[in-house]
Design a binder for these strands. Structure first.
Lengths: 224, 224, 224, 224
DNA sequence: CATGAATGAGCTTTCATTCAT
DNA sequence: CATGAATGAAAGCTCATTCAT
């Protein structure tokens, strides 16, 4: 009954990963102890180490798992009609639906990677993959004339990826922060940065006629 | 001699702060131990606790100190001819002159603030002050028609401040990253976001003549 | 089929013992975990405990097994023409043919026996048996006038047995140690100790004639 | 008051070392936990690590300490009238006065060194120093014609040193073992091995007259 | 006959903080 | 003003052994 065993094993790993993820989100990498994770997974430490060889291995697995999801998301984005629109919509979705909860974990990983080689390796790989995915997306956008062709896609991807990863902190730092406003403004920022159709900010003070002349049907995003 | 005592006391505090800052920049908040700081300040732990009641108190003082410097910088920026230009120049200066070294400390502080109330309080205050300063700068820019008046200055400040604080990570994560390219692109991003004069990205594909018609002398930033 | 079952059972035990022996020789008693042994024997821990009730039981079985081999060796030695010669040849063979690899295991067992009663019992029995075998060998030598009759065979056996067991450490402690030289010198030591024919060390500086007068055909071992 | 502090510090280190030594002798290297040592030294673990950076550092200090004592002993031996006599007397003294208690610790160190590099380094150094000291002693003996000049002093030192270090096990393994007998026989073994005057074992069966002819006043050791 | 999931006490080590001097 | 000895809780991790299947 190999299959059953393997399935059970995987399920258990997933169970641990979920418990660990919750702990990490609540307490961060250093703040969440193996004991905490064991308690959350209702499991003895000895047994947990049966599935993962170290705390770092758990982090790694969580990151890989997140990477798969990211790949799926970016894939979906590529298959939308307008890439920049889809990207900013995705960003909005994340920021306004509590998906930013994990940002403190991300931030800590980034900081930790400055002096923990094992974590650095994990984070670096994650960064590389994400940038690669995003770069590919931007290139696709450039081919379809939806993204400014003057931008180097690799460097732009690094910038955009980093902002996407950490911007959730805006919600974290102050519960009263107007998150919807933040998300809207981020949409403006991203659109103006990437989209060649984006109306120059100054245009908005020009008379209506000027606007009418634009052949483009689609309305550019408005700053709030 | 009350005055002398106070001066001595302050000098000692400053001495500790400098040592601690170096340690935090090198090893991060969790990575730098009180022991390390004591060694760096050539001082016993007991004595150090005479000046600061906890590790957090040291962090707090460092942050306050940094805040004073920030205030000075923003003040200087306000008194420049063109505010957005000055801002992106400052950003460029930071990214290309190793000033990003401290980013791991910043990131760790942000993450720590998610679960350490004392740190959260410090970081929150810092954020508030920085955003206030930046918001005032943006407002000044709007009055001078150098910053898009359609942008809510508070929200825009939050966004820009966060990016300024964390973007140094791009250098941290990969020593081979083209930092000059990153800095240039960040200038493009910021200018397009804030500056009402910013040429729409699409323009760059228009014939030269069109560009010539622009009455503005200043050249808009170019994407790489 | 009682008989078949028993044979199978014994074969399995032997299989485990071989795996365990390899692990113990490589990693020592404390260094080799049950896990390691299970992996080496390609077997689950639960199943292993079906054959041996504890780690100590495994050690015990290995020791008993080694004892059988020892008995065979000593038996063979008894049936040689000259007992001391055969003994030192056996010693030389061990030291120069990597048979000393297991010495760290032996040393650890001896040390462990100082505080682990179960191990102590095993080791003690082993010592007793080995000394008994060696004592019998020495007695046989004395009867044939090949071993100094003035030596108490039990005490001499204890001494010689201990040296035989642990001398392999000389190779362990320093890979560059001149093992052949060590083995040769050990032969000198043993011969001078046991063999009544052994030339007093001083003789070696006497003129040839003195040596010629010796009626004994066999040359005593030379110090290097 | 530097001197007082340093003295206090050293005294504390010594205190810990004594407690640790007792624990190691009772329970061995692996068997004695830091907790045990802390309890024995009536001290918290944190404080113990104020004086020693690791368990291995404690072992190292104990070994160095023993080495100083060894150096003193060998020095004293060199300044005796007859070196081999003094050596065997020293050996006898050790074996018959409970000084062999530490042998289980020594054995465990030797075994541990086979797979713990830090311990290996310590033990190796110890071996090297001891052999060097003993080798020098033997050389001195050879110059005075008290030690067989045909023996390579380095190799002989390795052999003798190892036997001296581990022979205490004879007492450990069996409380009823005739330790006085063992010590006497070891004296015979050592004398026959090293001393050029040693009567060949066979002589003891020769008539009295032969013995009388020996010009040497000193009686050679007798086997029991 | 065989599995491997599960336990839990115990290990060495770290560190912010306190306190007697 | 200044020291550094002292604390003790908590960290990540190991491993012989048991037990349900």
């Amino acid at each position: 009954m190999r299959k059953v065993d393997q399935a059970k094993y995987d399920a258990k790993r997933r169970h641990i990963l979920e418990a660990a993820r919750a702990c990490f989100l609540r307490d961060g990498f250093r703040g969440a102890s193996i004991s905490d994770i064991c308690a959350a997974a209702r499991m003895s430490p000895g047994h947990l180490y049966h599935y993962f060889t170290s705390k770092e291995a758990i982090v790694k697995a969580i990151v890989e798992w997140g990477l798969e999801q990211s790949a799926a998301v970016f894939d979906k984005l590529t298959n939308t009609e307008h890439i920049v629109d889809a990207l900013v919509t995705e960003l909005d979705r994340r920021l306004t639906r509590e998906r930013h909860r994990g940002v403190s974990f991300t931030l800590e990983m980034l900081a930790e990677s400055a002096r923990n080689p094992a974590i650095a390796e994990i984070v670096r790989r994650r960064d590389r993959v994400r940038c690669e995915l995003l770069s590919r997306l931007l290139r696709a956008g450039q081919e379809r004339e939806q993204v400014d062709p003057g931008l180097d896609p690799d460097i732009a991807a690094a910038l955009v990826s980093h902002i996407m990863e950490t911007i959730g902190y805006l919600a974290l730092r102050d519960p009263r922060f107007d998150m919807q406003g933040g998300a809207d403004m981020l949409k403006v920022l991203m659109t103006r940065f990437l989209d060649p159709r984006a109306t120059p900010a100054a245009d908005r003070r020009l008379p209506e006629t000027t606007q009418k002349e634009r052949t483009d049907k689609r309305q550019p995003p408005r700053a709030r």
